[in-house]
Amino acid sequence: MLNLFIAFLAGGLFGAGLFVSGMTDTTKVQGWLDVFGNWDPTLAFVMGGAMIPMAIAWLIRRRRVTALTGAALPPPPSREIDSKLILGSVLFGIGWGLAGLCPGPSIAALSYGGPGLYVFLAAMAAGMAVAPLLRARLDRTVPAE
């Protein structure tokens, strides 16, 4: 039960942050990516601001054996740079630029995004549903080193 309360609290903070920062406004995201247009710096402040408490949390994590609920803490990050990471991130970036939406804000805007958002969400879910097949294919065609 505690883990559900924590998940709700974390999700709530995430949603509140996405909302007040203006990150559910697609013009702010596209305005940041568009260096040849009327450049909007907001996204950099959001990213920078988010990394401050998160970096502190990673430092605290080092001194702890388990999470508050007793769950295991994540292992050290993998260092493997593979084609999936690169290709996936490039595809994501193109979609992010096209619509000005990424997964977090698309959920935060659920109550006010309108029909366009639902179309985006349905397409995103479809993409996520087929991703495991593509991932398996990439694993087969690109042998691990």
Binding site: L2, L18, V20, G22, V46, G48, A50, I60, A67
Partner: peptide
């Protein structure tokens, strides 16, 4: 706008910190 961006960012990061230290999970949407 950038002040709200910073405030929002701090909230997002706090959410991630709560999820990590509370449930041991990485907050990836």
């Amino acid at each position: 706008d950038w002040i709200w961006g910073l405030i929002g960012g701090l909230l997002i990061g706090t959410g991630g910190a709560v999820y990590l230290l509370g449930n041991g999970r990485i907050m990836g949407a």
